[in-house]
């Protein structure tokens, strides 16, 4: 499967600077603010109306590709899931199937685990060679900040809501460091865990 996912991290690494031991900038990637339109005067509260918006959905293949680019600080259009794999993940072929299947099926989840392994493994390998502001795993000095950064990149969860997730990811990180033998293995484990989480795959 590794051969079928095109993520040009090698190119990216080649363009990156050598790691510098300076404390990197603290700015997090901005989270888009959700704009809520003003209601007309005397309009009942939306909460009282029991009107539900459409339910959550799974990421489409295109959304997945673009998300991986954002998470990994990769250039736009650089992640391309090959067509046969994309069809398996639900993309329509417009010959027999004309609508995208967005079911989080067992096969989809297995592919996500494998894909997470590939992407996060490549990010792990590239990390020491990337410029500090391009890093995904080791951008900050503390583990908690790095995990919070990873969480926000994958899910947009920030602030108070992030605390329980960071605690959870810390446990994964520790287990990853123990199991994989390196600090980066801990971040790799946290990365894969987020890759296969509902918080990332559903919206």
């Amino acid at each position: 499967m590794r051969s079928v996912v095109i993520v040009p991290l090698v190119l990216l690494v080649a363009c990156g600077e050598e790691a510098t031991p300076v404390d990197p900038p603290r700015a997090r990637p901005p989270v888009t603010e959700v704009m809520v339109p003003d209601l007309p005067v005397d309009h009942p509260s939306m909460g009282d109306l029991s009107i539900l918006s459409r339910g959550p959905r799974r990421l489409s293949v295109d959304q997945l590709e673009r998300s991986i680019e954002q998470i990994g600080n990769l250039g736009p259009g650089t992640v391309k899931i090959p067509e046969n794999l994309a069809l398996t993940l639900g993309r329509p072929d417009y010959v027999k199937v004309t609508e995208e299947s967005l079911s989080p099926s067992p096969l989809f989840m297995k592919f996500m685990m494998d894909l997470g392994g590939i992407i996060c493994g490549q990010l792990r390998d590239a990390e020491p060679l990337r410029a500090v502001d391009q890093r995904v795993f080791l951008r900050y000095t503390s583990k908690e900040e790095n995990l919070a950064n990873l969480l926000v990149r994958f899910t947009g969860i920030d602030g108070e809501a992030a605390a329980p997730y960071v605690a959870r990811l810390s446990r994964v990180y520790e287990a990853g460091v123990t199991g994989g033998g390196t600090e980066l293995a801990g971040y790799e484990a946290a990365c894969i865990a987020l890759f296969t989480s509902p918080e990332f795959l559903l919206y």
Binding site: G121, R171, A175, G180, E188, T196
Partner: peptide, 30 residues
């Protein structure tokens, strides 16, 4: 190609109780 130690760590996360955002996303059971 994933280190078994890393896989075990990931499974630790997957076996924990889902987070609050996941519960919000479960409105239709997805």
């Amino acid at each position: 190609e994933i280190d078994p130690g890393v896989v075990r760590a990931v499974q630790l996360y997957q076996d924990e109780t889902p987070g609050c955002v996941s519960r919000k996303l479960d409105r239709d059971g997805l």
